[in-house]
């Protein structure tokens, strides 16, 4: 019984919140609204899955949101100035991945703790994003094919939801069914034991941070396509929501451990909360307060993994 509460407690609490809004929030249960929630959380969920990879190897990534913004203005800027779409997309993906790889090198080679290294990279990414745009946003009537990446519907389902589901499935497969995945898990769970067993701990940590950056690149492309614009702070708000989704996810399914399914459900809970609160007429700032409470509550429930990642103890 205790194990059940530990494993599914927060998921059930999320379900209770969901049912509460079904009853009390006007129009909440409308299928269009529900799909809209999934669409809204897709960006934070993809970024959250990236953060899940990094945290799985025992490292934090505080740079993914700013890396996503930088990658977005690079993609948007290239499209805006007439470069071919594939080039623009590749540039966005490459910038995210390179930023993540740089985080990895700083952490595993230069030995800068990830908390600090990724914070510094976040600042640098932010600076470059403003440099590229000169502070304004790229807005335009862009190629419909490109815009469709973020706005199309497939069989009535927003394509963003499919991107999110696809990312989650691939991440789940890698972490659960491949040697690479289990080596990343071992690295985060017991670094010294993993090293003694011949696992390249440095490579795994570098990979975790690189994947986080790569998914920031993916998010950047989708975000740019969805909004048909690119601004230097466009992904900034996702930093806290994505981290909150991961932390909330760590309280369920595999308690204490970052896990993809938990991240997804955590994202859904956050999406449901902010949507339901708005429908019930709450002011926007209430969401921020709730988000903060979620972060504190989740970490209180699964503190040890976070402390290890942040401070190495």
């Amino acid at each position: 019984m205790r194990g059940f509460v530990q494993t599914y407690g927060t998921a059930l609490a999320g379900l209770a919140v969901f049912l509460f809004f079904v009853v009390f929030a006007p129009n909440f249960a409308n299928p269009i609204n529900l799909l809209n929630i999934l669409k809204q959380i897709s960006f934070l969920a993809i970024l959250g899955i990236g953060f899940t990879f990094a945290l799985t190897t025992g490292e934090l990534d505080l740079s993914f949101a700013n890396l996503a913004s930088l990658a977005a203005v690079a993609t948007g800027g290239l499209i805006h100035t007439g470069y071919p779409i594939p080039v623009a997309i590749l540039a966005g993906l490459a910038i995210g991945t390179a930023g993540g790889a740089l985080n990895g090198l700083l952490v595993t080679r230069v030995k800068v703790p990830s908390l600090i290294a990724t914070l510094a990279i976040a600042s640098i990414a932010n600076g470059f994003a403003f440099f590229l745009t000169a502070g304004v946003a790229f807005v335009g009537r862009w190629d419909p094919g490109f815009v469709a990446l973020g706005r199309a519907h497939v069989a009535g389902v927003p394509v963003l939801v499919l991107w999110m589901a696809g990312t989650a499935l691939v991440a789940l497969f890698v972490l659960k069914n491949t040697r690479l995945g289990i080596h990343m898990v071992c690295t985060g769970e017991a670094e010294e034991s993993a090293r003694l067993a011949g696992i390249s701990v440095r490579l795994m940590k570098g990979l975790g941070l690189t994947l986080s950056g790569a998914l920031a690149g993916v998010t950047a492309v989708l975000l740019t396509a969805n909004l048909s614009s690119a601004a230097p702070t466009m992904a900034g708000d996702y930093l806290l929501t994505a981290i909150a989704a991961v932390l909330l996810g760590m309280t369920m399914f595999e308690p204490g451990r970052p896990n993809v399914l938990g991240t997804l459900v955590g994202g859904v809970v956050i999406g449901v909360l902010s949507n339901g609160l708005i429908l019930m007429g709450a002011d926007y700032y209430v969401q921020d307060i709730v988000l903060g409470l979620i972060i504190i509550g989740s970490v209180a429930l699964s503190a040890s993994t976070l402390k290890k990642a942040a401070f190495g103890v």
């Binding site: 659960k176 069914n177 491949t178 040697r179 289990i182 080596h183 898990v185 071992c186 769970e189 017991a190 010294e192 034991s193 993993a194 003694l196 067993a197 011949g198 696992i199 204490g256 451990r257």
Partner: peptide
């Protein structure tokens, strides 16, 4: 003991030397 306490027994026994099945580079645990 150099174990990872939160992982399963079999994952600890096979840590770093997991068994896989599949073809060529396409292998799953």
């Amino acid at each position: 003991l150099a174990l990872a306490p939160r992982l399963a027994i079999y994952q600890n026994v096979f840590m770093g030397a997991e068994l896989t099945r599949g073809v060529g580079p396409l292998r799953v645990l």
